[in-house]
Computed example of a mutant assay.
Amino acid sequence: MSGSWGKMTAVMWATLVIALLLSVAPMPEHLEIGRPLWLALVLTFWAINYPHQVGLLTAWGLGLAQDILYGTLFGQHALALVLVVFLVVTLQQRLKLFPLWQQSCALLVIYGLAQLVLLWLSTLSGMRPEIGYYAVPVLVSCLLWPWLYLLLSNVKRL
């Protein structure tokens, strides 16, 4: 039991680190607006399946790492990821019962709220970001959710 749990923890952290790296990986400029919310997606998967292991502290730490990688206001992404994980863990029992397309619809609202917080914080810090840079990643992430869920479910079984 202990060995399989250690393996699962290693897989969980490996996927979270990969998601963190994907969130800053170079993309063509015209595709940058549609970059999925990789870290939020992977955190959501693990929070749905293992809510007692992936919680607010994990989201906060990874959000601070994302703030450092992006060079944004310290704590900005951390606050958004904590909001995502809080809502996902709160709704975890319901989300597990939903089919994947309904999960995507619920995540559209959750990620939209998180991006709204990021937009609000960016505006308060004096930047004038375009709303498209916050709305399009939410749509792309929700379209990507069923495929990522199936992929991570298969990785989890290994």
Rank of each mutant, 00 (worst) to 15 (best):
L83V: 14
L100Y: 08
V117I: 10
D67P: 09
E130D: 12
P99Q: 06
L91Y: 09
W147F: 03
N154I: 03
I131Q: 03
L64W: 06
L81Y: 11
L143C: 13
L151M: 06
L43W: 06
V42D: 06
A59Y: 10
W60F: 01
L151Q: 04
P137I: 03
M12Q: 15
I33S: 13
S122D: 15
L95P: 06
M27L: 15
W101R: 06
L31T: 14
Y149C: 02
V109T: 00
L95R: 03
L21G: 03
A40I: 07
I131M: 06
S4Y: 09
D67C: 10
F86M: 08
W60M: 00
M8W: 14
P26F: 15
L62C: 02
K7A: 12
M8A: 15
S122N: 12
G71T: 14
A19S: 05
F45W: 10
L100Q: 08
V140W: 04
E29C: 10
C105Y: 05
D67L: 12
V109H: 00
L124W: 02
L144E: 02
I48G: 00
Q92H: 04
L121R: 02
V85E: 11
A114C: 00
W38D: 14
F98M: 12
L107R: 05
L108C: 04
L143E: 08
A106I: 01
M27P: 06
D67T: 11
E32K: 15
C105P: 02
K7I: 09
L20S: 08
M127R: 08
G132H: 11
L31H: 11
L64Q: 06
F98H: 10
V54M: 06
L56H: 00
R35I: 13
L144R: 02
Q66F: 14
L37K: 11
W13N: 13
V17E: 02
S23T: 09
L124M: 04
V82A: 12
P129W: 09
T90D: 08
T58N: 01
W46R: 01
V89L: 11
W13C: 13
L31F: 15
G112V: 01
L144H: 03
